[in-house]
Design a protein around this nucleic acid. Sequence first.
DNA 1: TATTTACAATCGGAAAAATCAATACTAATT
DNA 2: AATTAGTATTGATTTTTCCGATTGTAAATA
Lengths: 293, 293
Amino acid sequence: MSKPTIRQLEYLIALQETKSFSKAAALSNVTQSTLSAGILDLEESLQQRLVNRGRKNITLTSFGEETCESAQKIMEEIDHLSYRAQAIKSPLCGPLRLGVIPTIAPYFLPRLMPRLKEQYPALELHLFEDISENLFEKLRRNDIDIALMAFPYKTHGMTQCPLFKEQFFLAMPKSLTTKENFAKLDDLDQQDLLLLEDGHCLRDHAVEACNLQIPSTRKAYSATSLQTLVQMVNNGLGVTLLPEMAVQTDHLPENIKILPFKKPQPTREIGLVWRKNSPKSGEFEMLSTVMTG
Amino acid sequence: MSKPTIRQLEYLIALQETKSFSKAAALSNVTQSTLSAGILDLEESLQQRLVNRGRKNITLTSFGEETCESAQKIMEEIDHLSYRAQAIKSPLCGPLRLGVIPTIAPYFLPRLMPRLKEQYPALELHLFEDISENLFEKLRRNDIDIALMAFPYKTHGMTQCPLFKEQFFLAMPKSLTTKENFAKLDDLDQQDLLLLEDGHCLRDHAVEACNLQIPSTRKAYSATSLQTLVQMVNNGLGVTLLPEMAVQTDHLPENIKILPFKKPQPTREIGLVWRKNSPKSGEFEMLSTVMTG
DNA sequence: TATTTACAATCGGAAAAATCAATACTAATT
DNA sequence: AATTAGTATTGATTTTTCCGATTGTAAATA
């Protein structure tokens, strides 16, 4: 009544993948006899058949499938173990798939990349620009390792790591001059507020921050990027909210005037999101300090 | 650069528990030299120190702790594996800790136990009666294996297995005679509705079902068990809602009249809850069929 | 029907590993 | 300096793993 072996569990996984003892053996880099014996041992130690040995093709029993799932979990955990051991010695090294929302990417990445290159020259950053919803889905499916996005956003089963808050500014055409040097939230719904199209969290956060009811008729004015939005404001079509980083970085057109808000200032929070069980969690913490620093 | 061994991970866990190579060795039923070599091998294969070897006492490095957590997950998964292999051959056998809420236990268990004894004579049922909140906590802490309770109730990270719905009946003193043979939900807030004390989900479900605002002043009337509540109704102190099983089973006092509700009938759902990753999930499914059948 | 094919199980021996018992080593304590 | 309390090391022994060759068996083919 001994315990299953990691090797035996590997054999079982290979067997499930190949549905053949000989192929599974090749996959596991052992001879067929070894794998056969290994599986028999496993069945012996569990006192349960794992494989239906048909003449033409073999299948796993339902308990075999169940066992295989556990085996995969175990192998995954072991891989994580080894990965982390490696990552301690040379963290943030090799490929890393980073998702970024469109209202952050063009402003934050140019600042980030040089610093990252300097501190972690071996890091291969693969970028994916998409809206929060899609990034979240990509995270869940392990299509990306980590996402840079704006909160509040519910990310179940993930770790959220807030980096910093930034305030929104009012961008208006110079023609709409006021003597005021500050905008007030109350003023907003009286004017033509231009927003990004649906799906951009910036839109939601702006709406939320300003406590506005946006009638769907306004959708006619929605734009697909902040740059476009700025152009629309420049042409006198209305006003909009711009996040701090867009104001600092963008080469803004002539005809645009930026006003800060009086308190309460509308803000959004920028942060990282990753799967709670990611083996790279430790490295992501380090990444976050590069991003805040 | 080989892979960690299950045995090595066991050694590490023993080491964390005992903080001593010799004691850990004894715990693992090997000699001190074996365990020492095992840990060294593990450190070698991960290329990382796992143990701070102080003269007086040893500690795990932070990576050692991290590795130990993974090791525990792995061991747990392996235990599950072995347990399930065993459980297939003789399911629902041995000790099982079942939590039951007080508004179900006295009515349902007398019906359940004989059938359970018949179908699974080797099952050792240990019963824990408590309110939903505490049962949930006991589940989380693995103080019980499974709970029988009433829905809706949010049980995060658990599997809910609904068994059946039961309707509520109105229990009133015979003195309050109406010509009606049915009660209506609208009638309720005009009368003295007696409820269980706070914490009982029956109270919440009744309130919810009847769409009532219960002023806290009514608390004066609250009782600690359905039996007590029935006595209060019997003494003409008011009316109450009783679940179907209480009506069917209880030897109700003379002075009480039971009325069914007109549609929409208020109901509650009875079901099982267990940890999603419980190795006994398969057996619990079987248990549920005994309970519905 | 006889033969071939395809595949898993089994066997015996060799290589690798895990383990033990004894011993060496090291720092703190007496 | 001797003792103590702990871990590391060593060499022999047992156990496990693995290979290569062989056997066994049902299906496919001739």
